[in-house]
Amino acid sequence: MTRDVPTDTDRLSALPRPQPRKKKLSREEKAQLTLRNLLEAAAAIVGEHGYAATTIANVTREAGVAHGTFYNYFEDRQALFDVLLPYVGERMTDYITASLAGVGGGLEREVARFRAYCGYLRVNPGFYRILYEAEVFAPKAFDAHIERLTEGYVRAFRRAIAAGDCYEMGDEELRAIAGILLGARAYVAMQFKDTGVIPETAIAAYESLMKQGLFKAK
């Protein structure tokens, strides 16, 4: 019986292939990654247990960093709370903006914006607690978040006015309308926070209100 003798090529092909070397992170990149991990950990803990129950120890444990590392980024727990909502809020608006790609203007865009907000809450239910408890535990962050959303709405309205999709309004009226819409979408969403699913009927009601108004003209 003839035995097959492995060739040099066979022997080489049997060797484990070298894995591509991972890019070594710079010091700045490592610092940014650690900061993001701390914020993500805080978002998870506050979203589930609230601000009062969130400690530096459980944030660093969740983030997988040493307790002392926390102080390279934040002076104390309050300093973390003061940036948490703006961080999470920016992720929310990024999600909504991405969802609006290819959507038209005016009413269609506003309804799509509300639907995207509902979608974000479905996959990030902890956002409710981070937002509403911030008014007590991180009021500066809460005010900054609301102001950023208001200014974003005002800019969107101005574009809609320029495109002929919205009635002419001054800045004060635009800010008032922005507040009304932010409140409407927040409180509609809160009605369904236990299930995490905002039904299409609620979105349709929002669309109807935006399209037709609430009261009939006499």
Score class of each variant (00 low, 15 high):
T2N: 13
T9G: 13
S13C: 15
S13H: 13
L15S: 05
R17D: 10
R21M: 13
K23N: 10
L25H: 07
E28Y: 06
A31T: 11
T34I: 14
L39G: 00
A43S: 10
V46W: 06
H49S: 14
G50K: 06
A53N: 09
T55D: 09
T55W: 08
V59F: 01
V59K: 06
V59N: 02
A63W: 11
F70R: 00
Y71H: 00
Y73I: 09
Y73V: 02
Y73H: 10
E75C: 03
R77I: 05
R77N: 09
Q78N: 07
A79R: 04
A79I: 05
V83A: 01
P86Q: 04
Y87R: 00
M92C: 11
Y95F: 14
T97K: 08
S99G: 12
L100W: 07
L107W: 04
A112Q: 07
A112F: 14
R115G: 07
R115F: 09
Y117M: 11
C118M: 06
G119D: 05
G119S: 01
Y120H: 02
F127Y: 07
F127K: 09
Y128G: 02
Y128R: 08
R129L: 02
R129A: 09
I130R: 04
K140V: 14
A141N: 06
F142C: 08
A144T: 08
I146L: 13
Y153M: 14
R158Y: 04
I161K: 07
G164C: 01
G164L: 00
D165C: 09
C166D: 10
C166K: 13
M169Y: 10
L174K: 03
Y187D: 06
M190V: 10
Q191M: 07
V197A: 05
I198K: 01
E200H: 04
I203L: 15
A204R: 11
K216F: 13
A217G: 14
